[in-house]
Simulated scan of single mutants.
Amino acid sequence: MPPVARRPLFALATGALAAPWIAGGARAQGNYPTRTVTVIVPFAAGGPTDTVTRLVAEAMGRDLGQTVVVENVGGAGGTLGAARVAQARPDGHTLLLHHIGMATAPTLYRRLPYDPVNGFETIGLVTEVPMTLVAKKDFPANTLAEAVEVIKREGDRLNYANAGIGAASHLCGLLLMKAVGTAMTTVPFRGTGPAVQEVLSGRIDLMCDQTTNTTEHINAGSMKVFNVTTAERVQSLPNVPTSKEAGLPEFEVSVWHGLYAPKGTPAEIQQRLSKALQAALRDEKLVARFADLGTAPVAQDRATPDAHRKFWQADIAKWKPIIQAAGQFAD
């Protein structure tokens, strides 16, 4: 895949190259969408964000009356895919579906080829997904308390997988190691799918991943699970305790997903996309599939541009001191 062009954001709004985009966008507003809509997933295929996106894209396509395709642009903790969308034509035909990494990138990355805060228009929140602490089948613990004892005893002799710096699994791991007070050897992978496969194979000891990607493996008995990282238990994993129930209340995090368009996308198109997103989140097939994966759509009033932006800004403020205290940056 060709490298992302490192153009400044003002080039998207000024200059000879930008003018046709703006004019074209203005002409297209009345009959948007005029062609296939592409939703960029900034992670490898098979991961939890990919799973969520494919369900949303299929349902949105029915409301928009156009095919909505998913393209995986993984790498650099999700920033390569985000950059692709930030630099795309702001006409509503190239979108981004990203997770909590949109709130952490402004602190994790000190140099980016796009503006991580002002380079996008928000369309709406999609879902908040619980995470699970999982382990290989023969890991020598059966409860979270026992797992904590093993972590403290073995320390960096244990391997902890993540999908790269800035990925949800990386952030969850930071929170776990802070709560336990012990560092493990972290092993980054290019995407969540490959990392999960290494846990399933027994070559990796532990991983923290979203229920959308672990529920089926847990219910099949192919990996151990110690807890869910939310305040309440998950319907698809009713026997799995919460972090608080398992004795580690400070180990609590959920992974939210939101839909974005490039900065400068006309307000009418933003609203049309938000309407299609809201329709998708009411889709019975999507709701049922989300439930199978241990999550649910957000309330309709959160699937709006304004609600999404307010939530995003608040989460940026929440994660900034945590990342700075950890002293782990992606560049």
Rank of each mutant, 00 (worst) to 15 (best):
T143L: 05
L144P: 05
E146R: 06
E146P: 01
A147T: 15
V148G: 00
E149G: 09
D156G: 00
R157V: 03
R157D: 09
L158S: 09
Y160Q: 11
Y160E: 05
A161H: 02
A161K: 01
A163D: 08
G164L: 10
G166A: 06
A167D: 13
A167P: 07
A168F: 11
H170D: 15
C172M: 11
L174D: 08
L174H: 08
M177V: 03
A179K: 08
T182Q: 15
A183N: 14
A183D: 14
M184R: 07
T185I: 00
G191H: 08
G191M: 07
G191A: 08
G193F: 01
G193S: 07
P194R: 00
P194L: 04
A195C: 09
V196G: 02
V196S: 02
Q197M: 14
Q197G: 15
L200E: 09
L200M: 10
G202E: 02
R203I: 01
R203L: 03
M207Q: 14
D209V: 11
Q210S: 14
Q210I: 07
N213F: 01
T214I: 06
T215F: 01
I218S: 10
I218V: 15
N219A: 11
G221W: 04
G221T: 02
T229R: 11
T229P: 05
A231P: 02
A231H: 09
A231S: 14
E232M: 07
R233T: 10
P238Y: 07
N239M: 00
V240K: 06
V240A: 03
V240W: 04
P241Y: 06
K244I: 00
K244N: 09
E245H: 05
A246G: 06
E250P: 04
F251T: 03
V253P: 00
V253Y: 12
V255S: 14
W256D: 03
G258D: 09
L259W: 07
Y260I: 04
A261W: 05
A261R: 04
T265L: 10
T265Q: 13
E268I: 08
E268D: 01
Q270N: 09
Q270S: 05
K275T: 15
A279N: 05
A279E: 07
L281T: 06
R282Q: 15
R282M: 10
R282A: 11
K285L: 07
L286C: 13
V287I: 12
A288V: 01
A288C: 00
A288P: 00
